[in-house]
Simulated scan of single mutants.
Amino acid sequence: MSPLNVNSLHRIFNKLDRNGDGLLSIDELLWLLDRIGVLVNRDELELLVGKKSLDLIDFLFFYETLIKGNIFEQEICKLEREDEILEGDLRKAFRVFDLDDDGFISCEELQIALTRLGLWEEHSGQDCKHMIGVYDTNSDGMLDFEEFKDMMLVTNQS
């Protein structure tokens, strides 16, 4: 198996950078290492990394260091494939709600889709505008795919 290219590593970096600050914290690196089955404690990782966080360039060097020892390559590629499969599944789910296929889920579409799925009762007091508003980061009253994805993955971010 060949090493990952810079574009693939950049995508992985962006996915690991959960708070979007352009840095991978020790916690984010620990999550990755744990996910690929490498047991290391925080102190050991901090000594290895030499910092509290890594920017993209530092992450690339970190990866190169690991690759030179033939460590992690298959596991990182497996993680990337799992993320691609999850993204595809989320796109399929998004299309269930995006009834007019315009790339957005409106309040009306959400209510119709939930009704069809048996998850909406007219007199329940539920407010689809509020449901959308919780994840509507750009405040346009609708969910785009990225907002939908954030909503669907929120339980995995603990």
Rank of each mutant, 00 (worst) to 15 (best):
E122W: 07
E146Y: 12
C128H: 11
G37L: 03
F61Q: 14
V6Q: 15
V134F: 14
V40N: 06
D55P: 03
I57Q: 14
G20R: 10
I76Q: 01
D89P: 02
K149V: 05
G88C: 08
V96H: 12
E28K: 00
L23T: 04
D34N: 15
M151D: 01
F145T: 06
C128I: 14
G69V: 08
F62W: 07
T137M: 15
M1A: 08
S2P: 02
L32W: 02
L110D: 03
M142L: 13
T137S: 15
D144K: 12
K78L: 06
N138Q: 10
I57N: 13
I67C: 08
N41C: 11
V96Q: 13
M1H: 03
L29G: 01
S2R: 04
F104K: 14
E122H: 10
R42S: 01
K52E: 10
N138C: 09
L47I: 13
A93I: 06
E64I: 00
G133Y: 02
D55C: 04
M1G: 06
F13G: 05
E109A: 02
V96T: 11
F145N: 03
I132C: 11
S124W: 06
C107V: 06
K92T: 07
V49S: 06
D136M: 13
E80I: 12
H123Y: 09
D98R: 11
K68Y: 10
R116P: 00
L119D: 04
N70I: 00
I71S: 05
M1S: 07
E84C: 01
F148T: 04
K68C: 09
D100G: 04
G69F: 10
D150C: 11
N138E: 12
D34F: 11
D144G: 10
C107N: 03
M151N: 02
G103S: 09
D17R: 07
L30V: 02
